[in-house]
Amino acid sequence: MTALAPTTPPLLSVRDLSVSYGPIEAVSGISLDVPEGHIATVIGPNGAGKTTLLSALMGILPSRGAITVDGVETSSPTIARMIAAGIALVPEQRALFATMTVEDNLVLGGFRRHRDPHYDADETLRDVYGRFPRLWERHRQLAGTLSGGERQMLALGRALMGKPRLLMLDEPSLGLAPLVVRDVFQIIAELKRTGVSILLVEQNARAALKVADHAYVLELGRVAMEGPAAELADDPRIVAAYLGKTSRHQEMLTA
């Protein structure tokens, strides 16, 4: 377990964030931190509000509460603002450009930096191909023809092309075969080593807890539990959060 040094200022800090759909609050008063170079994970059952949380953080949905990036506080930001702050989101549905080639998808990933004189698109592209050799093999293929795992890699690669400081991943293992899931989590661990901070939203709790430093468990739009990932990994309450508490098997599981 990586202990959080109290001196590390959080790259992303969220205080009391709430998101409503009409009269219903889907996310209520969530606070969380992602320190520089760390992986924070948000786990929880379906419908807990995980995707809503990420959408609000990316500026796709309006929200209430404070979002602080690198010491600069905003509320209900726009997408453009979050992108400018160096945040990238890989959404649950991946949102690839299906009828364009893998390479075009990647090149467009660097669009947000195309006016930046320090940005070298070719070098970044080589870097991404180095990280995902599979994408190089398929670089002329249309994104829509890729397999599920390759699509996830392309979505990750496209996000990395913009050289983000914080990568927000929404269920990267969704719909992937178990072997591919292992690959994806390996990639996430490697990304951390290269200094990218990650906010990982996952339903695959065990894999997420294994790779993350700190974890938040979401239930019905609220943080029900939080703590160092390694400690939460063995907590029987997590099983209950996912599969229900009322069964007599609950005692069996806790025992």
Binding site: N204, I238, V239, Y242, L243, M252
Partner: peptide, 12 residues
């Protein structure tokens, strides 16, 4: 609730 395949599907 105690089926190992279900636990794996939900928790990984």
């Amino acid at each position: 609730q105690s089926n190992p395949a279900v636990l794996e599907a939900y928790l990984g």
